[in-house]
Amino acid sequence: MIQNILILTLNDLAIALKNKTIYLILFIPFFVFLSLQLIDQESAGLQQVKIGLVKDQAYPTMIIEKIQASDKLFSILWLNDQAEGKKRLKEKKLDGILLATAEAAPGLKLIVLKKTSHATIATVESLSALQTAVEGKSKNWIADIQSLQDSGVQRQTLPTWILMLVLLVGFIIIPAQVAEEKEKKLLLGLLQTPINEFEWLLAKLLLGMILIHLAVIFLHLLGGFEVTNVLSYWAFISAGSFCFSSFGISLGFLCRNQASARSLGVFFYLPLLLPSALSDFSEKLTNFAPLLPSYQFYQPIKAILLEGSAISDFPLDLLYLIFVGVLTSLLSYQLIKKRWLM
């Protein structure tokens, strides 16, 4: 009996090797390790707080002198205007921007990306520690904190869930379905009718886009999440669903069967999901993630949902998504024409 179990287990392992499932066991830990290396590793307590100061602001002289003198706690970057500062905040190049308040008592207004973040806590703690050291207990230097992404924690995680949904349909569902149609010769059967390859491809693209739209609508209905710039939002959902459905179809075409398609889908799913979703926590990932089409989808969706941005703020991202979609559609078209692995 033990011998039979061993024979069957070895057979299962051979199948897993053949359909590439086993590679995931090596790939997933390796990829998670690689992602962890890209997340900023310094301890929050020891890290210098990166503060932006705007040139035309009338800062209380004493406070600014003390901040500038504490170069172990703070690194200062002088900015031309607030817009430059906000851009650098989004790029994780700054932890906060200090502005002068108009009130009679000397004080500062702190602008951060999110109120509930490690960077904000570290900034406030460092300023507070400096103030205590200089003045003892008195009125806080920070009179007001304003965040760029002013929304609840639930809503702040929404772009990540949307990205996950879109990539799940694009890289797990669609490739497996395409590979199934190839494996069972259903596609060849359909191509014995007067439909052309382009029509089949468009139908598959539509399927992916419909599934993604339905998933997103369902999520919004369940969570009661409202969107202010509806047109911009749906433009990016449509461009993203086109891009990743098309990508998924081409992956399905590269595989002979469903098991291979699922494995290959995961190979693409994780590297596209994690760097984009984790870019919020790391300057390193923020530098690397823009190379990925998922980031060109995630960033605009996040900005539209959390900062009220519009499509006009991200024209290149939209074009990039459409470009990747068209490119992968052309690849699929060539593969179907050649009856690749059918």
């Binding site: 069972k184 259903l186 059967g189 014995q192 007067p194 052309n196």
Partner: peptide, 20 residues
Amino acid sequence: NRLALVRKIGFVPESPNLFD
């Protein structure tokens, strides 16, 4: 000329390729 030819040829494969 596949689109015209599909009306001229019917093919029955060894394993039926139907939607299960």
